[in-house]
């Protein structure tokens, strides 16, 4: 029992719904990027982030508001992703548990570099040849299917996949070069 002179230790006030939404809104884009590093399908990743929001709120009483929100949210998102992969494993047995942990750890370590690379993406996109920009725009921005792109550009499906891969390669090389040029 506490003596009358001992300090009163009170639990932190619960996080209000509004505060939670504000915190979540802050981390949501990063969570989505994070989830997409393991589950590249946008629709799946988006659903998973929604589920993460619900899971976070449902376990809000376990969150200590004196600690940063982001790592906690990321951990819950990772758990959601694990569950998803377990369910999906029959069809798409991607990364094993050990690999997931490695990706998580490495992603945290690599975060500053990935952030810096993103800063140059706009520039690197503008330097792509027109044909590659058309591909990126069609595939990612307009969400055109590979088949539709192939038909529109009068090329085979496999050729479009290869061209997209080369485009991502080119972008990645450009981002690396830009990063090396940074002071």
């Amino acid at each position: 029992m506490d003596s009358p002179s001992s300090p009163v230790v009170s639990s932190p006030p619960p996080l209000s719904h509004q505060r939670f939404c504000a915190l979540f809104a802050e981390v949501a884009p990063e969570l989505l990027r994070y989830v997409m590093t393991i589950i590249p399908n946008v629709a799946d990743a988006q659903d998973l982030v929604q589920e993460t929001a619900i899971a976070l709120w449902n376990s809000i009483d376990r969150y200590d508001p004196s600690k940063p929100f982001k790592p906690w949210a990321r951990q819950i998102a990772l758990n959601q992703a694990r569950q998803f992969l377990r369910v999906e494993s029959r069809r798409r047995r991607f990364v094993e548990e050990e690999v997931l942990n490695l990706i998580e750890a490495r992603r945290i370590a690599l975060a500053p570099k990935l952030d810096a690379r993103r800063n140059h993406l706009s520039d690197c996109l503008s330097r792509l040849p027109t044909e590659q920009r058309t591909l990126i725009r069609g595939y990612y921005f307009e969400e055109e299917t590979i088949e539709s792109l192939a038909a529109r550009l009068n090329r085979g499906v496999e050729a479009i996949y290869k061209a997209l891969q080369r485009t991502r390669q080119a972008l990645s090389l450009c981002l690396d070069r830009k990063l090396q040029m940074e002071p």
């Binding site: 884009p29 989505l32 990027r33 997409m36 590093t37 393991i38 590249p40 946008v42 990743a45 990706i103 490495r106 992603r107 690599l110 990935l114 690379r117 993103r118 993406l121 990126i136 990612y140 921005f141 991502r168 972008l171 990645s172 981002l175």
Partner: peptide, 12 residues
Amino acid sequence: LQFADLHSCLSL
């Protein structure tokens, strides 16, 4: 991670 991050940026 670099390709996955690039893919997610473009997708988003």
